[in-house]
């Protein structure tokens, strides 16, 4: 259940649009923030807050791969393996994360600290390989640099 403040936040978004369906995507981000991922319950809360059907909410949410559709660790790594990044060794970086942290694509470390999603191009081809950790952006990656960066995410 969303609390009063969250409901108010969603309401403020809703009144900006003539059609309440337009407020769905921003509301899903709020739900994801509140629940950590888009669980059934999270989507039900959004449906209720916007008086939309649950199925429409799920249909829309499931279209977007950048929503979290399953529980993730405390920090989500989204690593690009598209052409530029791949050429510059992104696949090695995936292996590195696996060997060093036990982190597989679409997986979460046992301590629940890190999750990894392998992404399509995130628009940083010039400084590839690149990744996002939560909402922070990192490029020019190497194994060593990843190790250092991850020190900040406990």
């Amino acid at each position: 259940m969303f609390g009063e403040t969250v409901l108010k936040e969603i309401d403020e978004i809703r009144v900006k649009y003539p059609d309440r369906r337009s407020a769905l995507l921003p509301s899903l981000y709020i739900a994801q923030r509140e629940f950590g991922w888009l669980s059934q319950e999270a989507m039900q809360c959004v449906a209720k807050a916007l008086n939309l059907s649950e199925s429409i909410v799920r249909g829309t949410a499931s279209f977007y791969s950048m929503f979290k559709h399953k529980p993730v660790g405390r920090h989500l790594i989204q690593l690009c393996t598209n052409v530029s990044c791949m050429i510059l060794g992104a696949e090695r970086l995936v292996d590195f994360l696996g060997n060093k942290y036990g982190l597989q694509p679409d997986g979460t470390t046992e301590d629940g600290r890190l999750s990894l999603v392998v992404m399509e191009c995130i628009g940083a081809c010039g400084t590839a390989p690149a990744m996002l950790i939560n909402t922070d952006f990192y490029d020019n990656l190497s194994e060593k640099r990843i190790e250092e960066i991850l020190e900040k995410y406990k």
Binding site: Q40, M43, L52, S53, E54, S55, I56, R58, G59, T60, S62, F63
Partner: peptide
Amino acid sequence: CNDVQGASAISIIGRGNHSRMEPFS
């Protein structure tokens, strides 16, 4: 279900090759 019945109980889940029709649950 959406436009005639108005129940909006099912939708297309996922996208591309993985799209499938499903009820919410």
